[in-house]
Amino acid sequence: MNPRIGIIQFPGVNCEYETARALESVGMSASILRWNVAPAMIPDFDGFVLPGGFSYEDRVRAGAVAASDDVMETLMAAAADGKPILGICNGAQVLIESGLVPGLTGGRIDLALAPNKGMGRDGYYSNWVYVKVGPDPGRSFAAYGLKEGDILPVPIAHSQGRFTSAESGLFDTLEAESQIVLKYCKADGSAPGAFPDDPNGSERSAAAICNASGNVVAMMPHPERSTWLRQVPADIDSVWAARRNAGLASRAALEGEGPGAGIFRSMRAYIERKP
């Protein structure tokens, strides 16, 4: 049977439907679980996605209110069971606010997603960026089927996406433990330098970070917006754009997989892995 993924629909999220389509496109089944019925249903699923949006209106801080919602307790139990949980954008903010990521010291909140720096002004920033797969990709479900150094063009859309921490040395640990799953980079994979290749000023250019067990991943870019080739902009500097242009007038080509599909494929492969 295909892996079954539950998408947690907190009040105010807004990426749940396309996330469901993206999960289904790589052969999983997806169900949208309203926040107040989700706790009872969580045992039935093999993995979870916390989708993007503005849960609880981003009151207090992005993700903060959802992080204390009842559903999180059941999700923590699922995480402890080793089930994969992917937080995308606002979902990543929820995972950081709940302490599930990086999850090094019990439930302590060691990381923050702070307001973007670099654009020269505050506010929401929406654009395509490049991310590179970090070392030991197999240690997290999100890069399980990818190779170290793979470059994926993906879009970001957030105001608060700068991974940072007050704990000195935390990012050294995350690097050493290969918990930085994806890093922003230039089109050729080199270090991003300044804005816009570094879109938000994240520590170590981090775009996605996993917990110690690799089964919970907080990812700021939106893989569900680059799951199909047609979603990839025609004019960016990438083999994916070249593929898109070569597919002109061929719907079959344009409905083929885009770079973001690799994340969902990895999730499926991780769930189906032989122990």
Partner: peptide
């Protein structure tokens, strides 16, 4: 760059890429 043009995941041509935006019925 402040506007989210891709939520819903339906876009095939986004603002600026062409004379018109194209949105695909999934």
């Amino acid at each position: 760059r402040h506007y989210d043009s891709e939520v819903k995941g339906m876009s095939a041509l986004k603002p600026g890429e062409a004379d018109a935006c194209v949105t695909v019925i999934p």
